[in-house]
Nucleic acid binder design. Structure first.
Lengths: 153, 153
DNA sequence: ATGCGTGCAAAGTCTTTGCAGCTTC
DNA sequence: GAAGCTGCAAAGACTTTGCACGCAT
């Protein structure tokens, strides 16, 4: 598996894990690598990740997947997205310039991604005011797409 | 039950429902009223709503509640929020000046609400570009609160 | 050697759905 | 009257958890 160009190595993860009394494992490394190889803008559900790992010949249990993505999201390594569906999606939590946001159609579930630098600026300012450290921010616009406007339901 | 000061009456809802071939029912009216009486910034889960209705002596089934909030959210009457927990919350989808956003702590689950007018402006611009009609927008900042920064997990 | 992590299977939580009868337009 | 709506109970989707064994530190 190639490891992409993101400056977040397995070793960095190991260090951050160890600092919390947690351990690096082959499963965690493999999962991190899948996310590192993910094209910008793609995001995976636990189930997606499971399938993808199977395709790569990696047999990691769903329990471990759920446990791992939750852990990585809490560490700020992954970004947890809640789009229009009923389950969460994850992607690598990219540094500033890659951050993107979502425009979702309530009717068709179409999701459009867009970028906007002001959002992070605003977020940092707000978080600062309350003493929070920002892990992630997402502007989620919910609306009706042109196609959706034509349907009754 | 008082009906608050929000300019969205049962009659308006009835009209919008009828326009789609749907009907006004006592259950839908009651549910709308609960949301209209909800203090700014409060949001209810389906379960919360069920309890609140019970307390008011209204016995509406959970199924109906789920069906109703989904319908109202799709109509843009309610705003569907996904905070840090594992279930959705709903609140009345207020006009511009009342819109608020959320700052969530991954560790403690604390949620802080804040307002920011730029967000709606940005959202409208983006939606416009893609031909979407905006129903709602929410900036969700995920981070670590001051309290959370002190705990290992 | 200690104790965290994994896999399995079972349980849990939240949400949706089929159906019969009642209600609204 | 026809088409929606409701309540009930059952099913469904997604996620979490207890436990025994194995592995990282």
């Amino acid at each position: 598996m190639t490891t992409g160009h993101v400056p977040y190595s397995s070793e960095t993860l190991r260090a951050e894990l160890n600092a919390k009394g947690c351990r690096m494992t082959p499963q965690r490394e493999t999962i991190l690598n899948v996310f590192k190889d993910l094209p910008e803008g793609e995001h995976l559900s636990a189930e997606d990740l499971h399938h993808r790992l199977r395709d790569l010949g990696e047999d990691i249990s769903l329990s471990t997947i759920y446990r791992t993505v939750r852990l990585l999201a809490r560490m700020g390594v992954l970004r947890e997205l809640e789009l229009a569906e009923d389950h969460k999606h994850y992607e690598l939590n990219q540094p500033r310039p890659h951050h993107h946001h979502h425009l979702v159609c309530v009717k068709t579930n179409r999701v459009i991604e867009f970028k906007n630098d002001q959002i992070l600026t605003i977020s940092k300012k707000v978080a600062d005011k309350f003493g929070f450290k920002v892990l992630d921010c997402e502007l989620r616009i919910v609306g009706v797409s042109p196609e959706g406007q034509r349907s009754i339901f």
